[in-house]
Design a protein around this nucleic acid. Sequence first.
DNA 1: TAATTTATACTCAAACAGAGTATAAGTCAA
DNA 2: TTGACTTATACTCTGTTTGAGTATAAATTA
Lengths: 332, 332
Amino acid sequence: MIEFSSSDIVVSLSAVIVSVENNRPRILILPSDDNKEYASLPSGPYSPESHRTLELGLKAWVKSRTGFDLGYVEQLYTFGNLFRSQILEEKGLRLLTISYLALIHPSEISEDYNACWQNYYNFFPWEDHRKGRAASADKLLEELYDWADEASDRVRRLERLERIQFAFGGGRWDPDRLLYRYELLYEAALIAEAVRDWNAWPEEERVRLPINRDNPGSLCCKVESGIPLMYDDRRILASAIGRLRGKLRYRPLVFELLPEKFTLLQIQNVMEAIDGVSLHKQNFRRLLLAEGLIKETGEMDRTSLGRPASLFRFRKSIYMERPQVRMGQGNN
Amino acid sequence: MIEFSSSDIVVSLSAVIVSVENNRPRILILPSDDNKEYASLPSGPYSPESHRTLELGLKAWVKSRTGFDLGYVEQLYTFGNLFRSQILEEKGLRLLTISYLALIHPSEISEDYNACWQNYYNFFPWEDHRKGRAASADKLLEELYDWADEASDRVRRLERLERIQFAFGGGRWDPDRLLYRYELLYEAALIAEAVRDWNAWPEEERVRLPINRDNPGSLCCKVESGIPLMYDDRRILASAIGRLRGKLRYRPLVFELLPEKFTLLQIQNVMEAIDGVSLHKQNFRRLLLAEGLIKETGEMDRTSLGRPASLFRFRKSIYMERPQVRMGQGNN
DNA sequence: TAATTTATACTCAAACAGAGTATAAGTCAA
DNA sequence: TTGACTTATACTCTGTTTGAGTATAAATTA
């Protein structure tokens, strides 16, 4: 029926584990140790003999390594292309990685385990527009225009300009296009991994040779384009955050990142942290209340400055009826 | 580094290959032969030694088997849970399936290869609401209410009713919830596969025991709930069509299913075929023209009855700038 | 020539999104 | 105790989008 063996394939599960603390969106990483130059995403083997489903396997593995019970878990993408792990490929093995997005509820987070959380904007500094357009976004944009000018002919140049426009410029900044931006930057060799991987790729598949104009001949990334990760882990991270941002807009996932009771501002802060944009407070409030997804508890939050805010709770019962959590745009 | 072997895993690539012909949305299937009771999706091995990427592997395999060059290809989901292939599991192997959605451009379709196309509403008869709400949707809804009544307690019953409401009833029919509906029907044992798989599952994981009230004791599905497929192929199909419907709303994928030049009605017909709903013609026109994704050719279509329609062409150049292809709702 | 069919233009009202003003209810520091 | 500051919440205004419908144009066929 299926006439092949797959002993030359190694299957792993990688997880992008997200939580939000104090307006900082963070992910769990395994820090680089002496042997490794790069940090990596938590990644474990897939053991069909001990787990009925992929997701259960992932949860069990994460639990055993970090002690965290994952809340929301969603499969993202399966990577199986060549040039992902040189070590395995030298042994004639192909690495197949099934990536997951997972959210951790604040109640799960114990103080004694604070080692490996990293603000994810460390990996995508151009993505945080909460205090106005990120400076690095504009710097990268300049670099991208240089890249467009290097195109071999006019059509190709225009195509590059169009992609740049779609990713970074034009009308409104779209947080959901994170992955698209990352891939464009990679292609333009403005991402450290692109430089690192340059030699591994066959000649005809290589991205632009990164040339530092100030120091011709050297391979380097001039601008702050974030911290690199192991293998293609930063790409996986990009797809996870992009997906999270998109999904937040039409499914009530925020509550997975909020305590049992919360104020409207807390919801807004989590949304803003993840999206990297700031929202119009009054309109955000209007939308949230119109949704009917939350219910007033009658209690007040007195921990913060200013007029106390009502505490709300998520109405799980109505979860399914109203899938939309729309959002406003723009600063106050 | 990754300390495990995966010789007990078998990896396959499955494809849901879609085209639209004459207002009928179709998929490619491998018909059941003498050995098999069920038809299945085209599915091939993943051979890392011969293909650089998963997608290239899929394309090559489909090309060799069917002669089709796939246009748009998108990875969907990777299935790796237990109870997917009894045959392999008896040998101690786990089947890992990476599923894909692929679209075939009409120009690719040769007349001599017409064997294996099937209208996908044959598998989801409750999904076609182009001529008003599908009769089978209402029949299934009745069955689902019976299922809700069978719940062990009040809370569980209300939860079921809520899910039923979300899937089938309430305000507006949402074509994007196809997968959700399929999974609900499966759980309520209204899908033939649920009955077929019933014995394979461990006791505590089983879905409802399907009882035909008219003929107590027998396992059966009373209503027309579509043609079953091999393994969990119909679930894969459901996720593919659901995804296609969703994506069509915010990416200009329709053009992958249309000839080089087309009338506005042709676009609408393809959209309606895939979504299974009918749209307001004038509003659809307004939206399409506002998008700027299409350009008039100046030519007219004289092949159909009535006033000739302008022929348009897809403006690829602007592809990236305007990702949205919104749609109106409702009948004329 | 009239009935039929499809295309296309235009109107109208309700709902919604973006932006802002106004006011309430707390804290904190002088 | 007052006034500056901070946050919450209510409400307004306007332009856009959406859903639904009317009107007219341009072809075919009986």
